[in-house]
């Protein structure tokens, strides 16, 4: 046996495997915050990434623009055709918004679950081993970002939520991550709103799964799915996607729907982190659903 203990390499290997298992176990724990060395490394690396990333994005953006110009004529034709539709819609929206405001004043109800402060952020890194879809942005705790906040694209479609924050960066878990804990309270817009929870992502259909919809709710294809704002830190009324297909749940007590997300999860350069105005922060760490 003494010879076994004299073999230095074997000891080092065994110790490092134990260390590895311990570290993995530690990081899989449902952590509220990152430890300070991690936060420090994230901030420093984030800064370096930012320096390299910006010029690269700029150059790529230029080529993309050139590519876009080629299709401009065709697109312009289609868009012109839809312009009238848009003008009518916009007039309607404005009128409704005004009326809403007036009614609110009438009721003396100033706050709403819908209001949020947008925090603009740029993507500085993306997980290269694409086992988990994680992106890193350049805004963090100092800018008011906290764990669990909703992240949307500039066109206001939901893409994910904040997983961890450090003082100057935040890690965003995209909705396409196959994480059961990634639940979002949502509803299907219709004559009567049907509420449910977004739980997980179907890789094959490329669709989110909206579960726990009441069995008697009337849902049709193409109806829009929005966040309900009932779960915690998410504001109300962020667009998620539209219903693709409805079917009974595994147990047959409730129904589930496949929701096609509006946001393109892969093509993301800039994001907006939505910091809800109402009741925020009531209690830190309560944000999780």
């Amino acid at each position: 046996m003494p010879q076994f203990f004299l073999n230095k390499r074997l000891i080092v290997l065994l110790v490092s495997i134990i260390f590895l298992v311990a570290l993995i176990g530690f990081s899989l724990k449902d952590r509220q915050n990152l430890t300070w060395p991690e936060q420090f490394i994230k901030d420093t690396t984030g800064f370096v990434q930012f320096i390299f990333h910006k010029p690269a994005q700029f150059v790529a953006g230029f080529f993309e623009n050139v590519n876009d110009i080629k299709h401009t004529y065709k697109e312009n034709k289609i868009l012109k055709a839809r312009l009238e539709e848009y003008a009518v819609l916009e007039a309607q929206v404005q009128e409704l918004e005004k009326e809403n405001e007036r009614l609110r004043e009438f009721l003396d109800k100033k706050e709403s679950l819908r209001d949020f402060d947008p925090i603009q952020a740029t993507v500085v890194g993306r997980n290269p081993d694409r086992w988990q879809e994680l992106i890193i942005v350049n805004k963090g705790e100092r800018h008011g970002v906290t764990k669990g906040m909703a992240v949307i694209t500039p066109s206001k479609a939901l893409v994910g939520k904040v997983q961890h924050v450090s003082p100057f960066t935040a890690t965003i878990q995209l909705l396409s991550a196959s994480d059961q804990k990634n639940r979002i309270s949502a509803f299907v817009q219709g004559e009567e709103n049907a509420f449910g929870l977004i739980e997980g992502y179907d890789e094959k259909r490329k669709a989110l799964i909206l579960k726990r919809i009441p069995f008697d709710a009337k849902i049709k294809k193409k109806q829009k799915v929005l966040t309900s704002g009932l779960g915690g830190v998410f504001p109300k009324g962020l667009v998620i996607g539209e219903v693709l297909e409805v079917k009974p749940d595994e147990y047959g007590l409730t129904r589930m729907a496949y929701v096609k997300p509006y946001a393109n999860f892969y093509d993301i350069d800039d994001v907006i982190i939505a910091k809800r105005k109402i009741d925020y922060p009531v209690e830190k760490g309560e944000g999780e659903e």
């Binding site: 490092s16 260390f19 298992v21 311990a22 690396t45 990434q49 890194g125 997980n127």
Partner: peptide, 20 residues
């Protein structure tokens, strides 16, 4: 490997161990 773990994947130890 440690930087990779902390910055990208948030599961510590995986790449640190294998790269070494």
């Amino acid at each position: 490997g440690l930087l990779y773990d902390v910055f990208y994947t948030e599961i510590l130890g995986v790449y640190m161990f294998i790269f070494a």
